[in-house]
Write a protein that binds this DNA or RNA. Structure first.
Length: 577
RNA sequence: UGGGGCGUAGCCAAGUUGGUUAAGGCACCGGAUUUUGAUUCCGGCAUGCGCAGGUUCGAAUCCUGCCGCCCCAGCCA
């Protein structure tokens, strides 16, 4: 009997294990992550990345990054650079970087083969007519009037398409399969369309571009992919995926892959298996590139990397760590069930990682002055505080204490609710690392607002003294008024007010549910050591939460910290009922 | 009778060939520890596996019939 914690064994990993065990593909495993460079990667992509790279690594295999650039009218170089950076940040590296456009010549030869074998034809129907001929979900379609063109005409027409003789939309190359199929993807799907646009990789070399269904399976085969993982909506496409590969027979037809030899990109073609899994959904967020793009375009957020965005670069800037994201993906598993992960699970992963790795610091967000009346007027004492309560290897830091301190307004109450464990008039509380203080008097302004607490420090409770062990109901944080530095704090909350912004009442859109309080900027006082923080350094500000020095806008001169998330807070939850 | 998927707790999710008390995590609820109302630790949390029948000594697992949810009619991916 073994009590070891088993590595995740989802249904895909089980299939892979079986294939390895039975010697399929000679026991080799090759996967790929194939983003289309038309937007930034988000947490949903992280699932695919972790799956593809993870499975490859667990099985001594390799994983390629393939930029799926078959539609030049939507894609951009900005995205391909961002994609690579995000994958690296997540902690993965590809064994091979390819573009679908590397294979354009092979796609073309394959298309001619489909024509020659009577499996494809040039169709003159315009887009609207194609739709009419396609039929509906419950009615069969009709054959295109161009379906029975002879092979010579088809070949000639297709070559002229490539030569640029026809206008955009005038003709398509279509697979000849079955217009009556219950699977609409098999009703003579388009293989090539005419697009007279510059391609970011191939320039003006082409004016015809292959469709996803054709390009994807062929790309997979050309790269020797063994397991082609994709999301559920492609389940219906699998018969087409298999059909193209069977008609083409890449492994058995070297003339097709010949162009790759001179480019140094030839690999033994495989017969990959497409396997579908459920995409990741998270409540209170949207993960549609189109909608994320709109938020950026319309300035509803500051950019793709706004810390409120579910993009990888946004989460990075928010202070979420790659390890936490990987842990989330590990925890949620892989199945074919549509599901919505609670945001709280992500938070749990982040707290888990940050609790063990983030050094502790003190900062006060909403200051209230506390004066130690029995502290010598100008005296300054240097105390030491551990950087981590449970990890001595994190070391200690020094902190100056003087007579005037800032504490959190919330940590004092004149009329405390039941169960309040902080400072009250006449009560005691421990100041972290200093000792126990008693509140003797309140100083008020003309409107009666408490502006200052007059306190005395019990000298017997200084750290290291036996009296320090005296129990007191609460411990609060502080900074020295004379020594604290001013910092900018950015507090983030969920971007949307409702759990499912993708599914809203009629006439409404996700935009109607943006949380107006998702960003709050304030000035705060922090311990001086934070001026030396490096950008992207994570901290726990004790009792407040986890913060990260902003990747771009933080500097020693103008420190900026983003709150990644708060600490778990059973007190405020109890207060709110 | 268009095609393809999926139903195990509030949210995820193990459970594979039918075999003792239906893993685990998150959330939640108790309690212990605590110079962070944090962390950590301990305990609780499905007489039940979409529903209804059936087969069997025994069913989340097999059979039948229902019900519910998701995806597909781009010259997007």
């Amino acid at each position: 009997m073994s009590d070891e914690i088993r590595d995740p064994q989802d249904f895909i990993r089980q299939m892979v294990a079986t294939d390895r065990a039975t010697g399929k593909h000679d026991g080799h495993i090759v996967t790929r992550f194939p983003p289309e460079p038309n937007g930034y990667l988000h947490i949903g992509h992280a699932k695919s990345i972790c799956l593809n790279f993870g499975i490859a690594h667990e099985n001594a295999g390799v994983c390629h990054l393939r930029l799926d650039d078959t539609n030049p009218s939507k894609e951009d170089l900005e995205y391909v650079e961002a994609i690579q950076q995000d994958i690296h940040w997540l902690g993965f590296d590809w064994d091979l970087l390819r573009h679908a456009s590397d294979y354009f010549e092979v796609f073309y030869r394959g298309a001619e083969k489909l024509i020659r074998t009577g499996n494809a034809y040039v169709c003159d129907l315009d887009a609207d007519s194609v739709r009419d001929y396609r039929g509906t979900l419950t009615e069969a379609g009709k054959n295109s009037p161009y379906r029975d063109r002879n092979i010579e005409d088809n070949l000639d027409l297709f070559r002229r398409m490539r030569a640029g003789e026809f206008a955009e939309g005038a003709k398509t190359l279509r697979a000849k399969i079955d217009m009556a199929s219950g699977n609409i993807n098999l009703r003579d799907p388009a293989i090539y369309r005419i697009r007279k646009v510059l391609h970011q990789n191939t320039g003006d070399a082409w004016c015809i571009y292959p469709m996803y269904d054709y390009a994807h399976c062929v790309s997979d085969a050309l790269e020797g992919i063994t397991h082609s993982l994709c999301t559920l909506e492609f389940e219906d496409h699998r018969p087409l995926y298999d059909w193209f590969l069977q008609q083409l027979d890449l492994p058995g037809d070297p003339s097709l892959t010949e162009p790759l030899h001179e480019k140094g990109q030839w690999l033994p073609p495989s017969t990959p298996r497409q396997i579908e899994f459920a995409r990741l959904n998270i409540d209170y967020t949207i993960l549609s590139k189109r909608k994320l793009m709109a938020l950026v375009r319309d300035n509803l957020v500051t950019g793709w990397d706004d810390p409120r965005m579910p993009t990888l670069c946004g989460m990075r800037r928010r202070g979420f760590t790659p390890a936490a994201l990987r842990d989330l993906i590990r925890r949620i598993g892989v199945t074919k069930q549509n599901s919505v992960i609670e945001f709280g699970l992500l938070e749990s992963c982040v707290r888990d990682d940050l609790d063990t790795h983030a050094p502790r610091r003190l900062a006060v967000l909403n200051p209230l002055k506390l004066v130690l009346s029995n502290w010598p007027d100008q005296a300054v004492e240097i105390i030491q505080l551990p950087n981590h309560p449970k990890d001595a290897s994190c070391g200690v830091r020094q902190l100056a204490v003087a007579q005037e301190l800032w504490i959190e307004q919330e940590d004092f109450s004149e009329n405390p609710p039941k169960g309040f464990r902080r400072l009250v008039p006449g009560g005691e509380v421990r100041l972290r690392g200093i000792g126990i203080v008693r509140c003797n008097a309140l100083i008020r302004d003309s409107s009666g607002w408490v502006t200052e607490l007059d306190c005395t420090l019990d000298p017997d409770t200084r750290p290291g003294l036996p009296g320090a062990n005296r129990k007191v109901k609460g411990t609060i944080h502080w900074v020295s008024v004379r020594h604290a530095i001013e910092v900018e704090i950015r507090l983030y909350d969920r971007l949307f007010d409702i759990a499912n912004p993708d599914q809203v009442d009629e006439g409404k859109s996700y935009r109607d549910y943006l949380n107006p309080d998702s960003l709050q900027i304030l000035k705060a006082w922090a311990e001086p050591s934070l001026a030396a923080a490096e950008a992207e350094q994570h901290y726990q500000f004790e009792r407040l939460g986890y913060f990260v020095a902003d990747r771009y806008e933080h500097s020693a001169k103008t420190p900026v910290f983003n709150r990644t998330l708060s600490l778990r807070d059973s007190w405020s939850r109890r207060q709110q009922g």
